[in-house]
């Protein structure tokens, strides 16, 4: 099978949907001839024209609200925000309008839109361009939250997100953009709310999201050298969350480590840990649940400090060993 980068997979998902469905269009800053801040839409204006690849003013509040209004009246907009940090400016429309319109209106009207946005640290962009704020969005009823970690998942999840009749926040980790995996040419959909077991194992379960899936996979290779077998679960979507797959894995391994890049305090890892503590898997636990997350600090500029602000492969290896009393 052919390999694609994560970035190319995102682009292909959008292009294929746009060829199929006239109602799908993209709006965002510099997404035209520039190709978007990270080059995701490069070449698309040439194929689809400026009506459907709409270059917007620097107006995150207006773009998000325009997407809501267009979605409410029959379109399926995809909104690109250059950096997920700027969701603060679009927040009112996502949280107070998009998420609530259907409920407030008693089930009439729907808001089928996707807000795509690059998230995370690792590019030296510092505090206002490196955050992972997905827990904010996961907190709000009415939104769905997707965080693909591989090219294959990105393509299938994005198709599902565009086809979904609800507002979906689609986080693309910047460090994932250049990662590659086998990606089928034909369109395919990965249902929202279905976790993926990225590696099977028996001694401990690691639930990891976005770039941390890759770090957990590296950690697994290290741990294997010491005879430790870990199972890695990528929820892929935080809302809806596939609790079943996570519970089943914890029942099998009896140990849980949750790892995400977002700040640990108030992060989604707390939700996963609580969910397990409240579930039938609790009785199977042989050790306290461990959470790994970013330190409670704005992401710094200096590369050494930046790396130290988020969990590393070594942190994951140590956490697993600690859980197994094998330090």
């Amino acid at each position: 099978m052919r390999e694609l980068t994560y970035l190319e997979a995102v682009r292909e998902a959008m292009s294929q949907e746009m060829r199929e469905n006239e109602d799908v269009f993209i709006l965002g800053e510099d997404i035209g001839v520039y190709g978007g801040a990270f080059g995701v839409t490069r070449g698309m204006i040439e194929e689809f024209g400026p009506e459907r690849i709409r270059n917007t003013p620097i107006s995150e509040a207006a773009i998000s609200g325009t997407a809501v209004g267009a979605a409410l009246t029959g379109m399926r907009p995809i909104l690109e925000l250059q950096f997920s940090d700027f969701i603060t400016i679009a927040m009112d429309n996502m949280v107070n309008q998009a998420a609530k319109i259907r409920y407030m209106y008693g089930g009439k009207g729907k808001v089928p839109m996707v807000l795509r946005t690059p998230a995370g640290s690792g590019t030296g962009a510092a505090a206002q361009h490196s955050q992972s704020l997905e827990a904010w969005m996961a907190h709000v009823p009415g939104l769905k939250v997707v965080q693909p970690s591989t090219a294959y998942d990105a393509k299938g999840l994005l198709k599902a997100a565009i086809d979904d009749d609800n507002p979906v926040i689609f986080y693309e980790h910047k460090l994932c953009y250049k990662t590659k995996s086998d990606v089928p040419e034909e369109p395919y959909s990965i249902p929202l709310g279905k976790a993926d077991i990225k590696r099977e194992g028996s001694d401990a379960t690691i639930v990891a999201t976005a770039i941390m899936v890759h770090k957990a996979l590296e950690a697994a290779v290290e741990l294997e050298k010491d005879g430790i077998s870990v199972e890695i679960i990528d929820p892929r979507t935080l809302v809806p969350l596939d609790t079943e797959t996570i519970v089943a894995s914890v029942k099998k391994t009896s140990r849980l480590i949750v790892v995400h890049e977002a700040v640990k305090r108030g992060g989604f890892g707390g939700e996963i840990a609580s969910m397990i503590a409240e579930s039938e898997a609790f009785d199977y636990l042989d050790a306290p649940i461990k959470r790994l997350g970013g330190k409670a600090v704005p992401i710094p500029y200096n590369p050494d400090l930046e790396k130290a602000a988020v969990p590393s492969v070594e942190d994951i290896v140590s956490a697993v060993k600690e859980t197994l009393n094998r330090l």
């Binding site: 773009i63 809501v68 379109m75 907009p77 107070n96």
Partner: peptide, 15 residues
């Protein structure tokens, strides 16, 4: 809250 929602609905009309 209605400004950009109205603009979006008008964009649908235009598109």
């Amino acid at each position: 809250g209605g400004f950009s929602i109205a603009a979006g609905a008008a964009l649908t009309s235009q598109l």
